[in-house]
């Protein structure tokens, strides 16, 4: 199939960017979106032009590295699908496809379609863990955890940290990402001890990194490749309310 690509090119964080047109003549519908870009790059390189820089690694929808906005939608048109798992059979012959990086202030562009997502790591460092010294854990079966709770924690833990939720949100809010982690850890008996400290710390880090507020548009949930739902945000808001009330009244966590 033939495609007209319009791709965001930008040399570095402080340079100006622009959309550049490329034509592809022979794209296999069975190839993946990233394989299509591989072919474009192959042509560019052989002709001495600079290839389009984009992030990717596992190409299996699990590492969270790939991060393209396709026709305005982070990860493109398929629901519950990261762009590395998107196949060209979902596009039509002759279509124009606009490819841009994540657009969010806290994620500055490094080059072309590559952005800097380290603020996500900083949110995790502010409490996205259970403090347990290596070697000091009790037997794995010492605390029974109901299947329902384990499943709920797993649903939340499925987040791949890609940042599509932020890119889709007009406030560049990181609530979905942050809530996925607080909900996972706060729902488990092992995580209860640090529940309040965790949610306060992570929300503060989120604000500090410049992510916006959540105003319930729900765009995040719509683009999330892993089905993380707004319910987790509601859960985080409840955890946050409890923790800040306790803090206000000076209760020990």
């Amino acid at each position: 199939m033939k495609l007209n690509l319009r791709i965001w090119r930008q040399d570095g964080e402080n340079s100006a960017g622009r959309l550049v047109d490329y034509k592809m003549d022979d794209v296999s519908p069975d190839s993946s979106f990233l394989e299509m870009l591989d072919l474009l790059n192959e042509d560019l390189i052989v002709n001495g032009d600079e290839p389009v820089a984009f992030d990717h690694d596992c190409r299996e929808g699990i590492c969270g590295m790939c991060s393209l906005t396709i026709n305005g939608v982070p990860h493109g048109p398929e629901r519950m699908t990261s762009v590395c798992q998107l196949h060209m059979r979902h596009f039509s012959d002759g279509e124009t496809v606009v490819i841009e990086p994540w657009r969010a202030k806290p994620f500055p562009i490094i080059r072309d379609l590559v952005v800097d997502r380290t603020p996500f790591d900083r949110i995790q460092q502010a409490g996205g863990f259970i403090s347990v010294r290596t070697g000091s854990a009790p037997d794995g079966n010492a605390i029974p955890i109901s299947k329902e709770v384990a499943d709920y924690a797993m649903d939340a833990a499925a987040c791949i940290g890609c940042g599509a939720c932020v890119a889709a949100c007009k406030n560049a809010s990181a609530m979905l990402f942050t809530a996925a982690k607080t909900s996972q850890l706060n729902s488990l008996p092992q995580g209860k001890a640090e529940k309040d400290r965790r949610v306060l710390g992570m929300v503060a880090a989120m604000d500090e990194a410049g992510f916006g507020n959540c105003t319930n548009y729900g765009e995040c949930q719509a683009v999330c490749p892993k089905g993380i739902t707004l319910d987790f945000i509601a859960q985080m808001n409840r955890d946050y309310a409890v923790a800040s009330t306790k803090k206000l009244f000076g209760c020990a966590f």
Partner: peptide, 16 residues
């Protein structure tokens, strides 16, 4: 044991 304590959500049976 270590991973369970960290909050890794391993699959569980109904008995927990």
């Amino acid at each position: 044991d270590q991973c369970v304590a960290q909050g890794v959500p391993f699959a569980r049976e109904y008995g927990g």
